[in-house]
């Protein structure tokens, strides 16, 4: 009897270990292929020069610049909105129908497929508001896409600020907003920054929304206004890998582009995670 139970346990734990091992293996295999094939393509010239010869040679500079513009544009919109919205929800909102509606909307925005955001951006920003296929349209679309991420992360950060801080400040005759501004926000900022940084990774990697709102296959020069079309890293990779002029020949450029994308995203994640763990240590003290 007992030995049977023990045997079952051995088998079960073996399977659990195997499953965990597979998950880790996926991570390592994907990273290995991208890194080992991509690193030889990367050089300063690759990063800082324009594509040449119908994108079969040269660098990916315009795609990097385009992705940077998207990050700046979407963060400029989503970060303040998201933080203010989180402050409202955690500090002011009373439980009730309005708050329920807002929470429901955030949850559903978070779960809406990015290609649907793309359709929306196309219908509203590109067509209806007449922004055209442009950095502006794509940034606004991406801003809505990451809004729930920023709101959730900021809410979480605000909730970790102990209630005692708020009470102490209010009991000194300080107004609610002054309390939030001087006590709650400074304590919550590391957590908010984490959320913001994570959404940078999201913006850098999203393809479907920008495909519908302004990303260009190839542009001979850098965008000169928010109404310009743009190249972007993820779309560039997609184009080269599926419909470039010579898919096999440009394989190194594809790996290089994938690696640059991966580096941006992982770098951003590492920063976010280390800020978060540093901050947790401080709180637990």
């Amino acid at each position: 009897m007992l030995s049977n139970a023990k045997l079952n346990e051995k088998i079960a734990f073996g399977l659990l270990r195997l499953a965990m091992g597979m998950v880790v293996a996926f991570v390592l295999v994907i990273l290995y292929y991208i890194v080992s094939n991509g690193y030889s393509a990367i050089s300063l010239d690759f990063i800082f020069s324009m594509p040449r010869n119908r994108m079969t040679e040269g660098g990916i500079y315009p795609a990097i610049v385009g992705t940077m513009y998207l990050i700046i544009g979407s963060m400029a919109v989503a970060l303040p909105l998201g933080i203010l919205s989180a402050i409202y929800l955690t500090e002011y909102a009373q439980p009730g129908r309005t708050t329920w509606t807002i929470e429901m909307a955030i949850n559903n925005l978070a779960g809406t497929p990015s290609v649907v955001f793309g359709l929306f951006g196309l219908a509203m920003f590109v067509k209806y508001l007449g922004f055209g296929a442009s950095i502006l349209s794509a940034s606004l679309t991406l801003a809505l896409l990451i809004l729930p991420v920023i709101i959730r992360a900021s809410q979480e950060a605000l909730l970790t600020v102990p209630k005692e801080y708020r009470e102490a400040s209010l009991a000194l005759g300080v107004t609610k907003w002054e309390t939030i501004r001087r006590i709650v926000l400074p304590a919550a900022i590391p957590g908010m920054v984490t959320g913001a940084i994570l959404s940078i990774g999201r913006v850098a990697g999203e393809t479907a929304p920008i495909l519908l709102t302004g990303a260009a296959y190839f542009l001979p020069r850098l965008p000169d206004s928010v109404y310009s079309q743009f190249m972007a890293l993820p779309y560039h990779l997609y184009v080269l890998a599926t419909s470039g002029t010579n898919i096999a020949q440009t394989r190194p450029i594809q790996y290089g582009t994938a690696l640059i994308l991966l580096i941006i995203v992982l770098f951003v994640n590492i920063i976010a995670v280390s800020i978060r763990s540093h901050y947790r240590k401080k709180i637990n003290r």
């Binding site: 998950v23 994907i30 990697g205 779309y235 997609y238 991966l262």
Partner: peptide, 22 residues
């Protein structure tokens, strides 16, 4: 292990697509 699995969440879908394709 937790941050390692989180890496999977961070990899852009186009990179997954590229990996899958190649």
């Amino acid at each position: 292990l937790k941050p390692v699995t989180e890496i999977l969440a961070g990899i852009p879908s186009v990179v997954y697509g590229f990996f899958g394709l190649v």
